[in-house]
C-alpha cells in the first residue's frame, strides 16, 4: 500500500481508504487488492445485534454508542451520569465485556453483539427481581448500569464471592450510596440463575418473605436451596 502525500486526492478506496489521483488508478487497485471482498457498506452504515435483534443503522462518526441506543433507539435504560467514562451508568455488554457506552464510538461497534438492560429485563433475568426485593436502588438513575455490570459478572462467574462482586462493581458510582445492598441482590440472583438457567417468569405480585437480608444469610439460604435442588 502506498502512501499518498497529496491531500487533495479525489478517489478514496471504500475498502481501505487509500487515496488515488485518478479513477482508473482506484479501479486498478480495487480489482487487484479487493477483488474477492464483498461490496463495502455505504459510509456510516453499521450493523449490530442488540439484545438479539439485528440493526442496520447510519451513524455519524462522532455518535457514541450511548447516543445511539439511548437517543436514537430509545433504549433509555442506559443512563448518562458522568459522560466521561467514570461512573458506569451507561454500561452495556459488548461481546461479553461490560463496557461504557458513553466512551465507545457507535461506528466502532459495527458487527458487535450488544446487550442492554432492556435485553436483560426482557430475558427475565433474576437480577431484576432481586434488585427490587433487596432495595438495591434509591433514585434508580445508576441502577441499570449496576444490573448490567452484575449480569456480565454472573455470565463469567456464576458463583461470585462477596469480594468479587464488590470488585466488579467498583466502576459504578451510586450517589445515593446503595452499595451494600447490591452484593446481596447479586448473590441471590446468581443462585436463581443457576437454578433456572433459562430464566423464570417474574410473578407480578411477590409474596416471598424478604427477611433474610444479610449477605451471609442469603448465601447460606442459597447453599441450602442448592443442596436440596441439585
Amino acid at each position: 500500500m502506498t502512501d499518498n502525500p497529496n491531500k487533495n486526492s479525489k478517489y478514496l478506496c471504500p475498502y481501505c481508504s487509500t487515496q488515488y489521483q485518478t479513477f482508473d488508478d482506484l479501479k486498478t487497485h480495487i480489482l487487484k487488492d479487493h477483488k474477492n471482498e464483498p461490496i463495502p457498506a455505504p459510509e456510516g452504515m453499521i450493523a449490530m445485534t442488540i439484545n438479539g435483534g439485528s440493526y442496520s443503522l447510519r451513524a455519524e462518526p462522532e455518535l457514541t454508542l450511548y447516543d445511539l441506543i439511548h437517543d436514537r433507539l430509545g433504549l433509555i435504560g442506559s443512563k448518562q451520569f458522568c459522560d466521561r467514562g467514570a461512573c458506569g451508568s451507561c454500561t452495556v455488554i459488548m461481546e461479553g465485556r461490560a463496557i461504557l457506552s458513553c466512551m465507545a464510538l457507535a461506528v466502532e461497534c459495527d458487527g458487535k453483539q450488544i446487550e442492554t438492560i432492556e435485553g436483560i429485563a426482557e430475558a427475565e433475568h433474576p437480577l431484576i427481581e432481586s434488585y427490587a426485593k433487596h432495595h438495591a436502588m434509591q433514585c434508580g438513575y445508576c441502577t441499570p448500569g449496576f444490573v448490567v455490570t452484575a449480569k456480565a459478572l454472573i455470565d463469567k462467574n456464576p458463583a461470585p464471592a462477596d469480594n468479587e462482586i464488590r470488585e466488579a462493581l467498583a466502576g459504578n458510582l451510586c450517589r445515593c450510596g446503595t452499595y451494600p445492598q447490591h452484593p446481596v441482590a447479586i448473590l441471590e440472583a446468581a443462585v436463581e440463575k443457576r437454578k433456572f438457567p433459562e430464566g423464570k417468569k417474574r410473578s407480578l405480585k411477590p409474596t416471598e418473605d424478604a427477611d433474610k437480608l444479610s449477605f451471609e444469610a442469603v448465601k447460606q439460604d442459597a447453599l441450602d436451596k442448592l443442596k436440596g435442588g441439585e
Partner: peptide, 24 residues
C-alpha cells in the same frame, strides 16, 4: 463532539498511511 472523519484501519501499514495523509 465535533465532526471528524473516521477510518477503520485494517492493517498497521494502512494506519500509518492514514497518519501521514492527515499530517498531524
Amino acid at each position: 463532539m465535533k465532526r471528524f472523519v473516521h477510518i477503520n484501519a485494517k492493517t498497521v501499514e494502512e494506519a500509518v498511511s492514514c497518519l501521514n495523509r492527515y499530517g498531524g
